[in-house]
């Protein structure tokens, strides 16, 4: 099954992380990504720019409303995501536990709703 790991945390903390190099990746994430790749579990994933760079769009009465900022202001923001392919929720939870952000934020594990026929 495919799962999306949503990395939720206080982005002020995430942005203040000191070990970040030019590409925006810490050594911990590099190691985590390597482990995911070695297990053949990774299908995709990216780090996201902070919510200050977010634009929200919705269409109402055929008119687009464009707003700066996220849909809702929350304590924890989405900082990045992974898409992994593993046999069951247990393996997905194991990978979520190993994600560096699990130490200070929350990893939300969401099953991907399959919409394409393979």
């Amino acid at each position: 099954m495919q799962y999306m790991l949503l990395i939720m945390g206080d982005e002020k903390l995430m942005n203040a992380a000191t070990e970040v190099d030019d590409t925006g990746m810490s050594a911990d994430y590099a190691a985590y990504n390597a482990a995911l790749a070695k297990a053949g579990a990774i299908r995709g994933g990216e780090r996201l720019r902070p919510t200050s760079a977010t634009t929200s769009v919705r269409v109402r009465d055929k008119k687009a409303v464009v707003l700066d900022g996220p849909y809702t202001e929350t304590q924890e923001q989405l900082g990045g995501f992974y898409i992994i392919d593993v046999p069951s929720l247990d393996e997905a939870i194991d990978w979520a536990k190993k994600c560096p952000a699990a130490q200070f934020g929350t990893i939300e594990v969401r099953p991907v709703w399959p919409t394409r026929r393979e």
């Binding site: 099954m1 799962y3 046999p87 069951s88 929720l89 247990d90 997905a92 099953p111």
Partner: peptide, 10 residues
């Protein structure tokens, strides 16, 4: 079913 909870002895 939807979350993919496994049927297995841990």
């Amino acid at each position: 079913k939807d979350a993919g909870i496994p049927f297995a002895i841990p």
